[in-house]
Amino acid sequence: MKISIAMVEDDERVRRSMARAIEASGRMQLVYQTDQAGQALLWMHDYMSQPPHVWLVDLGLPDGNGLDVIKAASHHCPDSQIMVVSMFGDEAKVLDSIAAGATGYLLKGQGDEDLIEHIDDMLDGGSPISPMIARQLLLRMKASRSFVRATDGATGQSPPPLTEREQMVLQLIARGYSYDEVATEAALSPNTVRHHIKNIYSKLSVHSKNEAIFEATRRGWIRMD
């Protein structure tokens, strides 16, 4: 069964680009698209036969706020994953989107291949965030030391170290390799790479590749060459 995707995006160029990427993946299917928040809410309430696996939602819509769509999708489609794709990258909008139910946040302008990889990452349990936004959030967490407390725990115990293979996978990811490129370089299947990534997230108590890279680097487990 293909991964079903609903898209709420008012920029026609962006909408067409994402639709092409979804179709080209061969594993995903665009089951609904609109440029209006109201139409998305109407479809969700009255016409949706079954919830999509993924929602791609813009925030700035001509008839309303994408946050309303995110809140409704989070309520009516609790098993769906919600990805914001927006030109707005300020911290307030990111945090509001996460509070509303989004599990990923991408800035517009990323490549089509990146979009598909980020959707896969989100469905595998990650929370993909554009690097610029992730850096803002990480700097804020680093300043308050809440990130260190969250990963070390109240007892001060460190998480279990990464295995040699997990370190290799994360090192390649840190160098900008895609999952498929990591699989080729490490002679692994893409599914095995995703399995390693999920284990890394669990060990480091993080939810995205950027957080994993930050924390593993801080601990000296990988190098940023």
Rank of each mutant, 00 (worst) to 15 (best):
G66M: 05
G66P: 03
L67P: 05
D68E: 15
D68Q: 14
D68W: 07
D68P: 09
D68A: 11
V69Q: 11
A72P: 08
S74W: 07
H75V: 15
H76N: 06
C77M: 07
C77S: 03
D79Y: 09
D79I: 00
D79C: 09
S80D: 07
S80W: 13
S80V: 03
S80T: 05
Q81E: 11
Q81D: 09
V84D: 02
V85C: 13
S86N: 03
G89N: 08
G89V: 04
G89D: 12
G89M: 02
G89P: 00
D90V: 00
E91H: 09
E91W: 00
A92P: 08
L95I: 15
L95Y: 04
D96G: 02
D96Y: 08
D96S: 07
S97K: 04
I98Q: 04
A102M: 03
A102C: 08
T103C: 14
T103E: 14
L106F: 12
L106W: 12
K108H: 06
K108N: 02
G109D: 02
Q110M: 15
Q110I: 15
G111L: 11
D112R: 13
D112Q: 11
D112F: 02
E113F: 07
L115C: 01
L115Y: 06
L115T: 14
I116A: 03
E117R: 05
E117Q: 10
I119N: 10
I119F: 07
D121Y: 14
M122A: 13
M122S: 06
D124K: 00
S127C: 14
S127F: 07
S127R: 11
P128A: 00
M132C: 09
M132A: 14
M132I: 15
A134F: 06
A134V: 11
A134K: 04
R135G: 08
R135Q: 13
Q136P: 06
Q136N: 12
Q136S: 13
L138S: 08
L138T: 10
L138F: 09
L139V: 09
L139G: 09
R140F: 08
K142T: 09
S144I: 03
S144D: 04
R145P: 00
F147T: 02
V148S: 10
A150H: 06
A150R: 08
A150F: 11
D152V: 15
D152E: 13
G153P: 06
G153C: 08
G153H: 00
A154L: 15
G156F: 09
G156M: 06
Q157V: 12
S158F: 10
S158P: 06
P161C: 04
L162D: 04
T163M: 02
T163C: 11
T163W: 02
E164N: 10
E164Q: 14
E164T: 07
E164K: 08
E164D: 15
E166R: 06
M168E: 13
V169H: 05
L170P: 15
Q171D: 05
L172A: 08
I173F: 12
I173D: 10
I173R: 10
G176P: 08
G176H: 04
G176M: 03
Y177C: 06
Y177L: 09
S178A: 04
Y179M: 14
E181S: 13
E181H: 05
V182G: 01
A183C: 04
